[in-house]
Design a protein around this nucleic acid. Sequence first.
DNA 1: TGTATTGCCGACAAAGATTGTCGACTTAGG
DNA 2: CCTAAGTCGACAATCTTTGTCGGCAATACA
Lengths: 152, 152
Amino acid sequence: MWVSRRTDYATRAILALSLEGGGPLKLEELARRTAVPQSVLEQVMPTMRTAGVVRSERGPAGGYRLNKEPGEITLERIVRLFQGPLAPISCATRHNPEPCPMMVGCTLRDVWEEVRDATISLLGGVTFADLAKRAGGPWTDPSLLSPEAVAG
Amino acid sequence: MWVSRRTDYATRAILALSLEGGGPLKLEELARRTAVPQSVLEQVMPTMRTAGVVRSERGPAGGYRLNKEPGEITLERIVRLFQGPLAPISCATRHNPEPCPMMVGCTLRDVWEEVRDATISLLGGVTFADLAKRAGGPWTDPSLLSPEAVAG
DNA sequence: TGTATTGCCGACAAAGATTGTCGACTTAGG
DNA sequence: CCTAAGTCGACAATCTTTGTCGGCAATACA
């Protein structure tokens, strides 16, 4: 029942971008605000770019922006990008579930499916607009912010 | 969002025992019915014995029985034995959550906690009496049953 | 044209978790 | 005793996760 670190990192990054308004954030700054190793974010962000969630610009003054409104990005979307199937067990996935050895009335599978659906329903019901709104104030340990950000 | 194989195996075993009524099942037979490698069940069952969920008898005519009524054993109980914390992320566990780097208003944690609670609520609300009842008929691929069991 | 700044990509090492197996041991019954 | 069970600890193999690195590509600006 655990989410991978990269999943965690990705959601933090999107939240950071949602709180930023429109302006682009450099990878370096993004890494600092989210307390994620920069080298890992370097892997995570392109995945989200390919998926159309964020947009990037190269060169000086480059960085990352959201490619949609925060209200259009659900937590489920991001989690799915990094997490694979959300079912707790391979015979309970939505697509191509593995046959489970308990043929008739695999009642356990029913429960795993319920867990899966509850999870999806929760994650699918939360957008980053919601999260940003709930977040309100400063969302990071101030000691992690860059000096410029603190000054601004 | 995945449950370990041992967790899966354990739940299957308890379901098998719940369907058995009172009589003891040998490890070998239990392994066959649940389609679990016997050598792994050899590890899984003692854990549940220590936890007081099942009882064992050695020697010929030995085997495993439930140590409680199926109605008293929740799925949550079993899952917890093998799965560790049910939260999706270490800052959202009930006991000794790790501090997360997003100090003020870690709104993501709130959602992870909701997922955790939904999971717990589902798993805690299902007992093996429920599962056994829902299971009804033969619950295993007949080809996996031992000849004696089929004859009986 | 060139240089600095930034993102992009692929390969990879280290660490850790999971899975399954084995052999030696203990207990109970006959 | 001897056999049929469960018990325990150690372990190898595999897979997954995590994080790093070096070099390449694009953009802005002088």
